[in-house]
């Protein structure tokens, strides 16, 4: 019999963040598909009661918690000890958690401690003949696999945005607090704090509805034979301010910046999508001055509606991959767009 455990962190306010509710959806999907399975919830944080109460109406039958000041912080050794304790207390066979930076860091190690296996970047869960199955991507989101495992516990990190958030209601949950004894040797790391990005680099907005993708074409010579990098930079930054879009960039454009060349100074590797960059999820994507084929375009694998502006009507980035390709000068279009949005 499978025992499905949702693992989540209670945030500073004691609530459950959206990725946790999405992972709960995946856990519930499994619970529903696998006959006779249990659904438990495990919470870790400074305080966990509020988070448990916030989803008390969900079909989970038991709530486990590890609470304490040291568990409020994101740190491998404390998170690992807490997760291991809960899993053992719950005797979980399937462990589902959101693929946040905190869980991504610690859960594989926990899988090792528990003698289990883990799949990360899971985008779907299902069953085949009553056995759990996960979907996940390989080779930088270039191919999708469906797989199953016999080992238990089987850990699954659910990619944020891949599931509908579970909107189950609040109530009063009974949390079984699990004691965790931290070995002294395991407390050699102190969390100092969070460093915010520089003010002029605040252009990554995971929650933005629109992803704005800039390609190396912005820095190339234009029709007048000159490059207009400063103008390009201003147009892009203005557009981001006006549209509240998240900024993505092609690798070649980011790399130019890394070489100390005078190109769009506000871009860093954090903005890069595709290849060694991220594969973000947004409802809409607008790409400008990009050219490429696989694997360049994996950066917008998970963008629902896609439009592109390019001077090349045969642009491989857009043809067959965008819904609309505007054959036009992005400088002119974005300048007009900024006027309209302003």
């Amino acid at each position: 019999m499978e025992t499905i455990l949702l693992l989540a962190h209670a945030d500073a306010g004691g609530a459950l963040a959206k990725p946790a509710r999405e992972a709960l959806r995946a856990a519930r999907t499994l619970n529903k598909a696998i006959a006779g399975s249990n659904l438990f919830v495990g919470l870790i944080g400074e305080n966990v009661q509020a988070a448990a109460d916030s989803i008390a109406a969900c079909p989970a039958t038991r709530y486990f918690g590890v609470a304490g000041a040291e568990f409020g912080q994101s740190r491998y050794c404390t998170d690992a000890a807490a997760a291991q304790a809960i899993i053992q207390a719950a005797q979980a066979t399937l462990v589902v958690a959101p693929a946040t930076s905190r869980w991504n860091r610690v859960l594989p190690g926990v899988a090792q401690r528990c003698g289990g296996r883990i799949d990360s970047h899971v985008t779907g869960v299902a069953d085949a003949d009553g056995q759990p199955v996960v979907n996940r991507w390989y080779y930088r989101q270039r191919m999708e696999a469906s797989l199953t495992r016999t080992q238990r516990p089987w850990f699954m990190l659910i990619d944020p945005g891949s599931q509908e958030a579970c909107e189950c209601g609040a109530g009063a949950a009974t949390v079984e607090l699990v004691p965790v004894k931290l070995a002294e040797a395991g407390q050699r790391t102190t969390v100092v704090g969070i460093r915010e990005p520089k003010a002029d680099a605040q252009t990554i907005r995971p929650d933005a509805p629109l992803l704005f993708v800039t390609g190396a074409g912005w820095t190339k010579k234009q029709a007048d034979g000159q490059a207009h990098v400063e103008e390009a930079g201003k147009l892009i930054v203005d557009f981001l301010k006006l549209s509240r879009a998240s900024l993505g960039s092609s690798k070649s454009l980011v790399d130019l910046g890394g070489e100390g060349q005078a190109v769009l100074p506000f871009l860093s590797h954090l903005n890069q999508i595709g290849q060694t960059g991220s594969t973000p999820r947004h409802a809409k994507g607008l790409s400008t001055c990009c050219h490429g084929e696989e694997p360049h375009t994996v950066g917008w694998r998970f963008i629902a509606e896609r439009r592109a502006i390019s001077l090349d009507p045969n642009c491989g980035w857009a043809r067959g991959k965008a819904d609309v390709l505007y054959v036009a000068d992005a400088f002119a279009v974005i300048a007009e767009l900024n006027k309209l949005l302003g």
Binding site: E144, L147, R149, R319, K321, D323, A328
Partner: peptide, 23 residues
Amino acid sequence: LKFLSVTLPKQLRATQIVKDKSP
């Protein structure tokens, strides 16, 4: 570990190409 399938995403979209509109 048992792989049930590994596939390339079906990502071909019917791209509408807009050529003759002003900025």
